[in-house]
Computed example of a mutant assay.
Amino acid sequence: MEQPGEVVVTDFGSFVGKKSERLVVKKEGRIVLEVPFFDLRSLVIETSGAGKANS
């Protein structure tokens, strides 16, 4: 169960990155979620097929 400020990534092929002061989750090149870092409490990645940005 997701709590306020908790992001759970479960989809294979998801991409997790940073854009300015936001966490960005993309799927098939499209942004599916943007969360300001000050609102983010935790990030859980529950798939072996997620990528991440190195910045």
Rank of each mutant, 00 (worst) to 15 (best):
V24L: 12
A50R: 06
R22Y: 06
P36W: 03
R41E: 14
I45G: 10
V32E: 15
P36V: 07
K27H: 15
V35I: 02
E21M: 13
S20N: 14
V35E: 10
K19D: 07
K27F: 12
E6S: 09
V8F: 04
F15A: 04
V16R: 03
V25D: 00
E6A: 11
V9L: 07
N54V: 13
G29I: 08
E28Y: 15
R41F: 14
S20P: 00
V32C: 06
K18Q: 09
E2Y: 15
V32Y: 06
T47I: 07
K26G: 05
T47D: 08
S42F: 04
V7A: 10
A50H: 10
L23M: 09
K19Y: 06
F37M: 08
K26D: 05
M1H: 09
S42E: 13
K27E: 02
E6G: 05
S55K: 06
V16Y: 02
P36M: 11
I45F: 07
T47R: 12
E28T: 14
L43H: 06
S42N: 09
R30F: 05
V32P: 04
V7T: 12
V16P: 06
V35A: 00
V16H: 01
I31N: 04
V44Q: 07
E46V: 01
P4R: 15
F38G: 01
G49S: 14
G29L: 12
V9I: 11
A53V: 13
F37N: 07
G17Q: 00
S20M: 06
V8N: 09
K19R: 09
F12G: 11
T10S: 12
Q3I: 12
V25H: 05
E46P: 00
G49L: 03
R30G: 13
